[in-house]
């Protein structure tokens, strides 16, 4: 009896996949195509759309607010990613050295990234509140002057990055811990015999071997960070003075507050291209260092 994928089996598999294919076509592929199409048109509320060529993209290129959003998004991305990767690696090394992880500790670690971002925004609103927040009080103990962290144009990005790091650094740590645990122990014994001191072992062996894992974590975080929306929408709505106006916040504002769908589509496409670009670059990097 011949059992490898017969034509009948292939038919059955196609039927199994069909509902998901149809749903995807309807809810994912069609919207993407529609958005591409819209990005070349104006779609004023209540009127027929009109082809405008690259006008929407040209408008983006001329818009200082768009360039501000690019700057905000990238700054937020770089700061957050740096904090999460270094913090996550540090935490993972601690967990690795502790050998075993009590269930309570793991519960604590997974809690932040399971809390709805809206709730995260709410909890930090009260903690960072200029008049009653615990943050200012704790900082005052160290002699740091109180500040309205989320209302300060200079501080809002680092503050939001810190909030996101609170939420996702443990996630990065758990991924890196998995990477650490899969490193071959004999390589470390070889390093011992080669006489590498512990500090050098970290820089010359552990870190290079962790790079693929770190790249994976970076890709996962990139996808979320470049699209940063929820926490900012809850806490600052892009303010003050557009200082936290990320691309996604700006796009939402254009699309669903100004209802300029064509322009918003062009923005969404630009953002998507950006995410794809960065992810592809990171993925190429990951392949290059996949020892």
């Amino acid at each position: 009896m011949h059992i490898s994928a017969s034509s009948r089996q292939r038919g059955a598999l196609a039927v199994l996949a069909m509902p998901a294919v149809l749903f995807t076509a309807m809810m994912v592929v069609f919207p993407i195509l529609y958005t591409i199409w819209l990005s070349f048109r104006t779609a004023p509320l209540g009127h027929a759309t009109q082809f405008v060529g690259f006008a929407n993209y040209a408008q983006l290129a001329d818009s200082p607010q768009f360039w501000n959003s690019i700057k905000v998004s990238l700054t937020l991305y770089v700061i957050s990613l740096a904090m999460q990767l270094t913090g996550g690696t540090y935490l993972a090394l601690l967990l690795f050295q502790a050998k075993r992880m009590p269930a309570i500790l793991r519960s604590i670690l997974i809690s932040p990234f399971m809390v709805p971002p809206v709730v995260v925004g709410m909890m930090f609103l009260i903690i960072l509140d200029p008049s009653l927040g615990a943050a200012n009080w704790v900082l005052s103990l160290f002699g740091i002057a109180p500040s309205a962290w989320l209302a300060s144009p200079e501080w809002v990005i680092p503050t939001v990055a810190l909030i996101d790091t609170w939420q996702w650094m443990p996630f990065v740590a758990l991924i890196v811990l998995g990477g650490l645990q899969s490193l071959p122990p004999s390589v470390y014994e070889a390093a011992k015999i080669d006489g590498a001191p512990p500090r050098l072992v970290f820089w010359r062996i552990t870190l290079p071997l962790l790079l693929p894992t770190l790249a994976t974590a970076a890709i996962l975080r990139t996808v979320d960070l470049l699209r940063f929306f929820d926490i900012i929408y809850v806490t600052t709505q892009g303010g003050p003075l557009n200082a936290s106006d990320t691309l996604n916040i700006y796009g939402f504002h254009i699309g669903f507050e100004l209802f300029q769908f064509g322009y918003a589509s062009a923005l969404a496409m630009t953002l998507t291209a950006m995410v794809f670009g960065v992810v592809l670059a990171l993925n190429r990097l990951r392949r290059a260092i996949d020892w």
Binding site: P184, S186, V187, E189, A190, A191, K192, I193, D194, G195, A196, I205, P208, L209, L211, I289, W291
Partner: peptide, 18 residues
């Protein structure tokens, strides 16, 4: 191990992959 001036060939070779 380093001070003992020995060298070892491991079962899985333990080469540094990077």
């Amino acid at each position: 191990p380093a001070e003992r001036d020995i060298a070892m060939v491991f079962q899985d070779y333990a080469l540094y992959p990077h």
